[in-house]
Amino acid sequence: MPRRYQSMTAADIDHSERLYLSGHSLVTCSKLTGFPASTIRDALRQRGTPMRPAGGRPSHR
């Protein structure tokens, strides 16, 4: 059975990380790179990239 998506290379993760850290959402990063947002999120978490709260708004508790 063929894979649905190509695996992210280190260069793909670097690019996604730059986009995310410059303020793009995971959804926008997905649209710009062609990788699913969940794949990008998982790769950035594995790398230790600081993640923003979901929804793009800081938590007010």
Rank of each mutant, 00 (worst) to 15 (best):
T33A: 06
S16V: 11
H24N: 08
A10L: 10
R4D: 00
G48R: 01
R47A: 11
S25G: 02
D14I: 06
R41M: 13
A43V: 00
I40L: 12
P53E: 12
L21M: 13
R41L: 10
D42K: 12
R3A: 14
P58I: 10
S38Q: 15
Q6P: 05
E17C: 06
S59K: 10
H60D: 02
P2C: 10
H15M: 12
L44H: 04
A37S: 15
H15Y: 12
G34S: 07
T9F: 11
C29N: 09
S7F: 04
T39M: 15
H24M: 08
R3M: 14
R45H: 01
G48H: 01
M1Q: 09
A54D: 14
I40W: 09
L32H: 05
A37T: 04
I40N: 12
P50E: 03
D42F: 09
I13M: 07
P50D: 05
T28R: 09
P2Y: 06
P36T: 06
T28Q: 13
D14Y: 07
H24F: 12
L21P: 01
R57L: 10
R41F: 04
P58Y: 14
R47V: 00
A11Y: 07
V27M: 05
Y5K: 14
R45T: 06
R18H: 04
M1T: 09
D14A: 12
Y5R: 09
L44I: 05
V27R: 15
F35T: 08
G23D: 03
S30C: 11
C29K: 09
S25C: 05
P2E: 14
M1P: 04
Q46E: 03
V27G: 06
S7M: 12
T9D: 10
Q46P: 00
A43R: 14
S38E: 11
Q46T: 01
M51D: 13
L19T: 04
S25M: 02
G55I: 00
S25F: 02
R61L: 11
M8E: 13
F35G: 00
S25D: 02
R61A: 07
P58W: 13
Y20C: 00
T33I: 08
K31L: 10
A10D: 15
D12Q: 04
A11K: 12
L32E: 10
S30Q: 08
P53R: 13
S59H: 08
P36I: 08
P2A: 11
R52I: 03
P53M: 07
M1S: 14
G34T: 10
A54Y: 09
I40Y: 14
G23C: 07
R61H: 08
S59A: 10
C29L: 08
D14Q: 11
R52E: 05
T39S: 15
A43Y: 05
R61E: 09
G34V: 05
T49I: 02
D14W: 07
L19M: 15
I13L: 08
Q46C: 02
Q6G: 03
R52Y: 05
L44N: 01
H15K: 14
D12E: 06
Y5E: 15
T28M: 08
K31I: 02
A43W: 00
R18M: 07
I40G: 06
